[in-house]
Simulated assay, not measured.
Amino acid sequence: MSLDLPLLWAVVIAITVLMYVMLDGFDLGIGILFPFADTAADRDVMMATVAPVWDGNETWLVMGGVGLLAAFPFAYSALLPALYPPVLLMLLALILRGVAFEFRLSGRARGKAFWTAAFAAGSLTATVAQGLVLGGFIQGVKLRDGQFAGGVFDWLTPYSLLVAVGLVAGYALLGACWLIWRTEDELHGRARRWAWIALLAVAVLLAMVSVATLFVHPRVALRWGYAAGHFDLARLARFSPIPILGVAGLALTALGLRRRSHGWPFAGAVLMFLSGYLGLAVGFFPYIVPYHMTFRQAANADNALALLLALGGILLPIVIGYGLWSYWIFRGKVGADAGYH
Protein backbone atom coordinates (compact mmCIF):
# COMPACT_ATOMS: atom_id res chain seq x y z
CA MET A 1 0.00 0.00 0.00
CA SER A 2 1.50 3.34 -1.10
CA LEU A 3 1.54 6.41 1.13
CA ASP A 4 -0.92 9.22 0.52
CA LEU A 5 1.89 11.79 0.27
CA PRO A 6 -0.25 14.96 -0.17
CA LEU A 7 -2.34 14.05 2.89
CA LEU A 8 0.75 13.14 4.88
CA TRP A 9 2.40 16.46 4.08
CA ALA A 10 -0.79 18.36 4.89
CA VAL A 11 -0.68 16.76 8.35
CA VAL A 12 3.04 17.58 8.72
CA ILE A 13 2.49 21.26 7.82
CA ALA A 14 -0.49 21.46 10.16
CA ILE A 15 1.58 20.04 13.03
CA THR A 16 4.49 22.42 12.43
CA VAL A 17 2.15 25.42 12.51
CA LEU A 18 0.50 24.13 15.69
CA MET A 19 3.91 23.62 17.33
CA TYR A 20 4.92 27.16 16.44
CA VAL A 21 1.72 28.69 17.79
CA MET A 22 1.91 26.88 21.12
CA LEU A 23 5.67 27.19 21.67
CA ASP A 24 6.41 30.67 20.34
CA GLY A 25 3.03 31.76 21.69
CA PHE A 26 4.14 31.77 25.30
CA ASP A 27 7.36 33.70 24.71
CA LEU A 28 5.49 36.23 22.55
CA GLY A 29 3.04 36.40 25.44
CA ILE A 30 5.88 37.25 27.82
CA GLY A 31 6.80 40.18 25.58
CA ILE A 32 3.16 41.32 25.58
CA LEU A 33 3.21 41.23 29.40
CA PHE A 34 6.54 43.10 29.63
CA PRO A 35 4.96 46.57 30.16
CA PHE A 36 3.00 45.28 33.17
CA ALA A 37 6.06 44.10 35.12
CA ASP A 38 6.86 46.30 38.13
CA THR A 39 10.63 46.34 37.90
CA ALA A 40 13.49 45.80 35.48
CA ALA A 41 14.56 42.86 37.64
CA ASP A 42 11.18 41.18 37.04
CA ARG A 43 11.60 41.70 33.32
CA ASP A 44 15.06 40.15 33.53
CA VAL A 45 13.57 37.04 35.13
CA MET A 46 10.74 36.92 32.58
CA MET A 47 13.26 37.02 29.77
CA ALA A 48 15.49 34.45 31.47
CA THR A 49 12.64 31.91 31.55
CA VAL A 50 12.57 31.77 27.73
CA ALA A 51 16.19 32.66 26.93
CA PRO A 52 17.28 29.04 26.31
CA VAL A 53 14.32 28.13 24.09
CA TRP A 54 12.85 31.15 22.31
CA ASP A 55 14.95 30.93 19.14
CA GLY A 56 14.40 27.16 18.95
CA ASN A 57 10.65 27.77 19.15
CA GLU A 58 10.82 29.90 16.01
CA THR A 59 12.37 26.99 14.11
CA TRP A 60 8.84 25.68 13.68
CA LEU A 61 7.81 28.85 11.83
CA VAL A 62 10.70 28.40 9.40
CA MET A 63 9.84 24.74 8.91
CA GLY A 64 6.19 25.55 8.29
CA GLY A 65 6.98 28.21 5.70
CA VAL A 66 9.62 26.18 3.89
CA GLY A 67 7.44 23.07 4.03
CA LEU A 68 4.49 24.94 2.52
CA LEU A 69 6.68 26.28 -0.31
CA ALA A 70 8.21 22.88 -1.06
CA ALA A 71 5.21 20.59 -0.60
CA PHE A 72 2.37 22.89 -1.70
CA PRO A 73 3.91 25.49 -4.05
CA PHE A 74 0.57 26.38 -5.66
CA ALA A 75 -0.90 27.22 -2.26
CA TYR A 76 2.21 29.23 -1.36
CA SER A 77 1.98 31.28 -4.57
CA ALA A 78 -1.72 31.97 -3.95
CA LEU A 79 -1.59 32.74 -0.21
CA LEU A 80 1.50 34.95 0.04
CA PRO A 81 0.32 37.70 -2.37
CA ALA A 82 -3.00 37.79 -0.48
CA LEU A 83 -1.27 38.26 2.88
CA TYR A 84 1.98 40.05 2.06
CA PRO A 85 1.48 43.13 4.31
CA PRO A 86 0.74 41.27 7.58
CA VAL A 87 3.31 38.54 6.81
CA LEU A 88 6.05 41.12 6.20
CA LEU A 89 4.97 43.04 9.29
CA MET A 90 5.21 39.84 11.32
CA LEU A 91 8.69 39.01 10.03
CA LEU A 92 9.99 42.54 10.67
CA ALA A 93 8.52 42.49 14.18
CA LEU A 94 10.13 39.11 14.92
CA ILE A 95 13.48 40.47 13.71
CA LEU A 96 13.11 43.55 15.96
CA ARG A 97 12.15 41.32 18.85
CA GLY A 98 15.14 39.03 18.33
CA VAL A 99 17.57 41.94 18.13
CA ALA A 100 16.03 43.52 21.24
CA PHE A 101 16.33 40.21 23.10
CA GLU A 102 20.09 40.10 22.49
CA PHE A 103 20.86 43.83 22.86
CA ARG A 104 18.82 44.42 26.00
CA LEU A 105 21.31 42.43 28.05
CA SER A 106 24.24 44.71 27.16
CA GLY A 107 22.45 48.06 27.16
CA ARG A 108 23.07 50.73 29.76
CA ALA A 109 20.16 52.45 31.50
CA ARG A 110 18.87 54.41 28.49
CA GLY A 111 19.72 51.70 25.99
CA LYS A 112 18.14 48.99 28.13
CA ALA A 113 14.91 50.99 28.36
CA PHE A 114 14.85 51.34 24.56
CA TRP A 115 15.42 47.64 23.93
CA THR A 116 12.85 46.75 26.59
CA ALA A 117 10.26 48.81 24.72
CA ALA A 118 11.41 47.30 21.41
CA PHE A 119 11.02 43.77 22.76
CA ALA A 120 7.49 44.50 23.98
CA ALA A 121 6.52 46.32 20.77
CA GLY A 122 7.97 43.57 18.57
CA SER A 123 6.13 40.87 20.49
CA LEU A 124 2.79 42.70 20.34
CA THR A 125 3.18 43.64 16.67
CA ALA A 126 4.13 40.10 15.64
CA THR A 127 1.11 38.72 17.48
CA VAL A 128 -1.30 41.22 15.93
CA ALA A 129 0.15 40.47 12.49
CA GLN A 130 -0.33 36.73 13.03
CA GLY A 131 -3.92 37.38 14.05
CA LEU A 132 -4.50 39.41 10.88
CA VAL A 133 -3.00 36.60 8.80
CA LEU A 134 -5.26 34.07 10.51
CA GLY A 135 -8.33 36.26 10.14
CA GLY A 136 -7.60 36.89 6.48
CA PHE A 137 -7.06 33.17 5.94
CA ILE A 138 -10.37 32.25 7.57
CA GLN A 139 -12.23 34.82 5.46
CA GLY A 140 -10.95 33.12 2.33
CA VAL A 141 -8.76 34.17 -0.58
CA LYS A 142 -10.03 35.24 -4.00
CA LEU A 143 -8.44 33.19 -6.77
CA ARG A 144 -8.65 33.26 -10.54
CA ASP A 145 -6.97 30.42 -12.46
CA GLY A 146 -5.13 29.42 -9.31
CA GLN A 147 -3.66 32.90 -8.70
CA PHE A 148 -4.59 35.58 -6.19
CA ALA A 149 -7.16 37.96 -7.69
CA GLY A 150 -8.18 40.08 -4.72
CA GLY A 151 -7.14 43.43 -3.30
CA VAL A 152 -4.08 44.36 -1.28
CA PHE A 153 -6.09 44.94 1.89
CA ASP A 154 -8.69 42.18 1.63
CA TRP A 155 -7.26 40.74 4.88
CA LEU A 156 -8.04 43.93 6.83
CA THR A 157 -11.61 43.62 8.10
CA PRO A 158 -13.40 43.92 11.45
CA TYR A 159 -13.33 40.14 11.67
CA SER A 160 -9.56 39.87 11.20
CA LEU A 161 -9.06 42.63 13.80
CA LEU A 162 -11.24 40.67 16.23
CA VAL A 163 -9.15 37.55 15.62
CA ALA A 164 -5.97 39.58 16.21
CA VAL A 165 -7.23 40.89 19.54
CA GLY A 166 -8.23 37.36 20.53
CA LEU A 167 -4.76 36.05 19.66
CA VAL A 168 -3.12 38.79 21.77
CA ALA A 169 -5.24 37.69 24.74
CA GLY A 170 -4.45 34.03 24.05
CA TYR A 171 -0.69 34.56 23.87
CA ALA A 172 -0.83 36.70 27.01
CA LEU A 173 -2.58 33.81 28.76
CA LEU A 174 0.09 31.35 27.59
CA GLY A 175 2.82 33.73 28.71
CA ALA A 176 1.28 34.31 32.14
CA CYS A 177 0.75 30.58 32.70
CA TRP A 178 4.35 29.89 31.64
CA LEU A 179 5.54 32.41 34.23
CA ILE A 180 3.39 30.75 36.88
CA TRP A 181 5.12 27.48 36.07
CA ARG A 182 8.66 28.85 35.87
CA THR A 183 8.90 31.72 38.39
CA GLU A 184 8.54 32.25 42.13
CA ASP A 185 7.88 34.86 44.80
CA GLU A 186 6.25 38.18 43.84
CA LEU A 187 6.54 37.72 40.09
CA HIS A 188 4.78 34.36 40.43
CA GLY A 189 1.88 36.09 42.21
CA ARG A 190 1.64 38.83 39.60
CA ALA A 191 1.63 36.23 36.85
CA ARG A 192 -1.42 34.63 38.48
CA ARG A 193 -3.26 37.94 38.38
CA TRP A 194 -2.31 38.43 34.74
CA ALA A 195 -3.50 34.91 33.96
CA TRP A 196 -6.92 35.52 35.51
CA ILE A 197 -7.40 38.68 33.47
CA ALA A 198 -6.18 37.03 30.26
CA LEU A 199 -8.36 33.97 30.86
CA LEU A 200 -11.50 36.09 31.15
CA ALA A 201 -10.55 37.99 28.00
CA VAL A 202 -9.87 34.74 26.11
CA ALA A 203 -13.21 33.24 27.17
CA VAL A 204 -15.13 36.28 25.92
CA LEU A 205 -13.13 36.76 22.73
CA LEU A 206 -13.13 33.05 21.87
CA ALA A 207 -16.92 33.03 22.08
CA MET A 208 -17.13 36.18 19.94
CA VAL A 209 -14.75 34.81 17.29
CA SER A 210 -16.56 31.44 17.22
CA VAL A 211 -19.92 33.11 16.62
CA ALA A 212 -18.49 35.58 14.11
CA THR A 213 -16.80 32.78 12.16
CA LEU A 214 -20.19 31.18 11.49
CA PHE A 215 -21.18 34.33 9.62
CA VAL A 216 -17.89 35.04 7.82
CA HIS A 217 -18.26 32.14 5.41
CA PRO A 218 -21.27 29.87 4.96
CA ARG A 219 -19.08 26.82 4.23
CA VAL A 220 -17.55 26.89 7.70
CA ALA A 221 -20.98 27.27 9.25
CA LEU A 222 -22.33 24.41 7.14
CA ARG A 223 -19.43 22.17 8.14
CA TRP A 224 -20.46 22.70 11.77
CA GLY A 225 -24.10 22.03 10.90
CA TYR A 226 -25.30 25.66 11.03
CA ALA A 227 -27.56 26.87 8.22
CA ALA A 228 -30.59 29.15 7.97
CA GLY A 229 -30.35 30.04 11.64
CA HIS A 230 -30.45 26.45 12.90
CA PHE A 231 -27.95 23.75 13.89
CA ASP A 232 -27.98 20.21 12.56
CA LEU A 233 -27.65 18.48 15.93
CA ALA A 234 -26.35 15.24 14.42
CA ARG A 235 -23.49 16.97 12.64
CA LEU A 236 -22.78 19.20 15.63
CA ALA A 237 -22.62 16.15 17.89
CA ARG A 238 -20.02 14.55 15.62
CA PHE A 239 -17.65 17.46 16.18
CA SER A 240 -18.67 18.14 19.79
CA PRO A 241 -15.42 16.70 21.28
CA ILE A 242 -13.55 19.74 19.92
CA PRO A 243 -15.49 22.45 21.81
CA ILE A 244 -15.68 20.11 24.82
CA LEU A 245 -11.86 19.98 24.75
CA GLY A 246 -11.78 23.79 24.73
CA VAL A 247 -14.17 24.05 27.67
CA ALA A 248 -12.13 21.44 29.53
CA GLY A 249 -8.97 23.48 28.91
CA LEU A 250 -10.65 26.63 30.17
CA ALA A 251 -11.92 24.81 33.27
CA LEU A 252 -8.49 23.25 33.90
CA THR A 253 -6.81 26.65 33.68
CA ALA A 254 -9.33 28.27 36.01
CA LEU A 255 -9.20 25.40 38.49
CA GLY A 256 -5.41 25.38 38.40
CA LEU A 257 -5.32 29.12 39.12
CA ARG A 258 -7.87 28.77 41.90
CA ARG A 259 -5.94 25.95 43.56
CA ARG A 260 -2.63 27.78 43.05
CA SER A 261 -1.20 24.99 40.91
CA HIS A 262 2.05 25.70 39.10
CA GLY A 263 1.80 23.56 35.96
CA TRP A 264 -1.89 22.87 35.35
CA PRO A 265 -2.84 26.41 34.21
CA PHE A 266 -0.33 26.17 31.37
CA ALA A 267 -1.60 22.70 30.42
CA GLY A 268 -5.16 24.03 30.33
CA ALA A 269 -4.14 26.99 28.13
CA VAL A 270 -2.45 24.60 25.70
CA LEU A 271 -5.64 22.52 25.52
CA MET A 272 -7.64 25.64 24.68
CA PHE A 273 -5.29 26.46 21.80
CA LEU A 274 -5.41 22.86 20.60
CA SER A 275 -9.22 22.96 20.60
CA GLY A 276 -9.28 26.18 18.58
CA TYR A 277 -6.78 24.80 16.09
CA LEU A 278 -8.73 21.57 15.60
CA GLY A 279 -11.90 23.61 15.15
CA LEU A 280 -10.27 25.57 12.34
CA ALA A 281 -9.00 22.36 10.73
CA VAL A 282 -12.51 20.88 10.73
CA GLY A 283 -13.90 24.05 9.17
CA PHE A 284 -11.34 24.17 6.32
CA PHE A 285 -10.53 20.58 5.42
CA PRO A 286 -9.71 19.70 2.64
CA TYR A 287 -8.98 23.30 1.58
CA ILE A 288 -5.47 24.65 1.99
CA VAL A 289 -6.44 27.95 0.32
CA PRO A 290 -9.95 28.66 1.58
CA TYR A 291 -12.21 28.05 -0.18
CA HIS A 292 -10.95 27.38 -3.69
CA MET A 293 -7.90 25.10 -3.59
CA THR A 294 -7.64 21.74 -1.81
CA PHE A 295 -4.39 20.32 -0.52
CA ARG A 296 -4.39 17.78 -3.37
CA GLN A 297 -4.73 20.50 -6.00
CA ALA A 298 -1.93 22.49 -4.37
CA ALA A 299 0.48 19.59 -3.84
CA ASN A 300 3.81 19.11 -5.57
CA ALA A 301 4.52 16.00 -7.66
CA ASP A 302 4.66 12.72 -5.74
CA ASN A 303 8.35 12.15 -6.46
CA ALA A 304 9.16 15.59 -5.01
CA LEU A 305 6.99 14.90 -1.96
CA ALA A 306 8.75 11.55 -1.47
CA LEU A 307 12.17 13.23 -1.55
CA LEU A 308 10.96 15.90 0.89
CA LEU A 309 9.63 13.18 3.17
CA ALA A 310 13.04 11.51 3.24
CA LEU A 311 14.71 14.80 4.12
CA GLY A 312 12.01 15.60 6.69
CA GLY A 313 12.50 12.18 8.23
CA ILE A 314 16.06 13.23 9.04
CA LEU A 315 15.41 16.84 10.03
CA LEU A 316 12.27 16.51 12.15
CA PRO A 317 13.74 14.10 14.72
CA ILE A 318 16.73 16.44 15.11
CA VAL A 319 14.51 19.48 15.70
CA ILE A 320 12.27 17.60 18.12
CA GLY A 321 15.30 16.09 19.88
CA TYR A 322 17.20 19.31 20.50
CA GLY A 323 13.95 21.03 21.51
CA LEU A 324 13.13 18.41 24.12
CA TRP A 325 16.74 18.41 25.32
CA SER A 326 16.71 22.20 25.77
CA TYR A 327 13.48 22.13 27.76
CA TRP A 328 14.79 19.29 29.90
CA ILE A 329 18.16 20.89 30.63
CA PHE A 330 16.61 24.25 31.55
CA ARG A 331 13.65 22.87 33.48
CA GLY A 332 12.69 24.15 36.91
CA LYS A 333 12.11 27.53 38.48
CA VAL A 334 14.01 30.64 37.41
CA GLY A 335 14.95 32.96 40.26
CA ALA A 336 16.23 36.51 40.46
CA ASP A 337 19.84 35.28 40.35
CA ALA A 338 19.36 33.71 36.90
CA GLY A 339 21.38 35.16 34.08
CA TYR A 340 21.29 35.17 30.29
CA HIS A 341 24.69 34.90 28.63
Rank of each mutant, 00 (worst) to 15 (best):
F34V: 05
L33E: 13
D232L: 07
A70F: 06
V202D: 13
G246Y: 09
G25I: 08
A109R: 14
L61R: 05
V11S: 00
S326L: 15
A164M: 10
G29N: 06
M46G: 15
A113P: 00
L316A: 12
G175H: 08
T213F: 00
I15Q: 02
V282W: 11
L174K: 04
D154S: 12
A310T: 11
A310S: 10
V133T: 07
G225F: 09
Y291N: 10
L278F: 08
F137R: 07
L205W: 09
P35S: 07
F284W: 01
L187Q: 08
K333P: 02
L274K: 00
M46L: 15
G65Y: 10
Y84R: 07
S160V: 09
I95R: 09
L174N: 04
F36I: 04
Y159A: 07
G283Y: 00
G263I: 00
A267E: 01
L89Y: 08
D55V: 09
I244E: 01
G323Q: 15
L23G: 09
R260M: 05
D4A: 01
G246V: 09
F148H: 15
A51R: 04
L8K: 04
P218Q: 14
F266N: 02
I32V: 14
L69G: 03
A267I: 09
I314E: 08
F284C: 00
L23S: 10
L274W: 03
A82T: 10
A113T: 03
A299C: 10
W178Q: 02
N303I: 09
L28E: 12
S326Q: 15
G122Q: 04
G31K: 13
L79F: 04
R238K: 03
G166D: 02
G107R: 11
L18D: 00
M63R: 03
L96A: 14
V133D: 04
L105Q: 12
G175C: 06
T213C: 01
L205D: 11
L280E: 00
A191E: 03
G67L: 03
A120W: 06
G107N: 07
F101C: 05
G283N: 04
S210D: 11
I288L: 13
G25D: 12
G56S: 13
